[in-house]
Amino acid sequence: MKIAVIGGTGLIGSQVVKKLTAAGHEAVPLSPSTGVDVITGEGLAGAVAGADVVVNLTNSPTFDDASRAFFQTSMDNILAACRDAGVRHAVILSIVGVDRVPGLDYYRAKSLQEDILKAGPIPYSIVRATQFMEFMAPTLAMTTDGDTVRLPSTPVQPIAAQDVSDTVAEVAAGSPLNGTVNIAGPDVFPLDELGRITLTARPDGRAVVTDTTAGMFAAAPGDALLPPPDARIAPTRYREWLA
């Protein structure tokens, strides 16, 4: 199959392209560097022409309320191009619990992206993943003040990007789900504990202080970021990934 991967040069997209290519598919990475702009629509029609599947891994450049306009415009443009090209399957990557954290602008915007896909003209699949292990470093940086990192004890179940790309590639190569698959890592941690584990393994002079109001994940109530019981559990454990 020919599979167009929009955002195919990023953390997940580059791995998805490699996996699909290794499996014998014609996987085409698309991004601004290849002349594709999902906001203006420039290059989209030609990029998805002849594609059986389009995987959308683009992301908003901001996490504030402006992210809503990004996902609205990009999804409208992508689905219109897919419809005109006769694409038979559209896939997006979303977030576990995205509809359970109304206090986050970005999560509301991602929920909108899912809704647009579900209401669109193309058979679809949604892959929802928990927080990436690779995002722990920027999460620490966002709430660092001098030598102190402030984090809430929000429960998280982190997953390795490699495991996410495995599932996205598998779903892209399969039949449309017209539904959602949830994926997560094998272990649950309070976010503040995860920060301490990280800084013990990679010490840099900072220490974690528990703060229920710190950072974007403080807005997540209860177990909102944890996967449902039927989620797929990936094999990579956080301490193994750190090592």
Rank of each mutant, 00 (worst) to 15 (best):
A137C: 00
Y107P: 01
H89Y: 08
F132Y: 15
L93W: 04
D163G: 00
V156F: 10
Q131P: 02
T148N: 11
L104N: 12
Y107T: 06
A81M: 00
D105K: 05
M133V: 06
A129C: 13
Q157C: 11
F63T: 00
M75K: 00
R128V: 08
A69I: 05
G146R: 13
R68A: 15
D105L: 02
V87G: 11
T62N: 12
R100D: 04
T154Y: 06
P158G: 11
A141R: 13
A109L: 12
L140A: 13
R150H: 14
A81Q: 00
R68C: 04
N77H: 07
A141G: 15
D163C: 01
I92T: 10
H89K: 07
P155E: 13
I116D: 03
S67L: 05
P152F: 10
D163I: 02
I92N: 03
L117V: 15
T148V: 15
A66P: 03
M75Q: 12
N59T: 09
P138R: 14
P152L: 09
E114H: 14
A90V: 13
P123V: 05
M136V: 14
L112T: 15
F70R: 07
C82K: 05
K118C: 08
D163T: 01
T139F: 00
P138K: 13
A129R: 03
V149K: 05
D145H: 15
Y107C: 07
D99M: 03
P123N: 04
N59L: 06
L57D: 00
R108A: 13
G103W: 14
V156Y: 08
F70A: 10
L117H: 00
S125N: 10
R83V: 01
I159Q: 01
L93S: 07
I95G: 08
A141W: 04
P152C: 10
I122Q: 03
D99Y: 04
K110N: 08
R128M: 07
S94K: 07
D65N: 12
I95W: 09
D84M: 03
P61Y: 03
Q72K: 13
R108D: 10
S153H: 13
T148W: 12
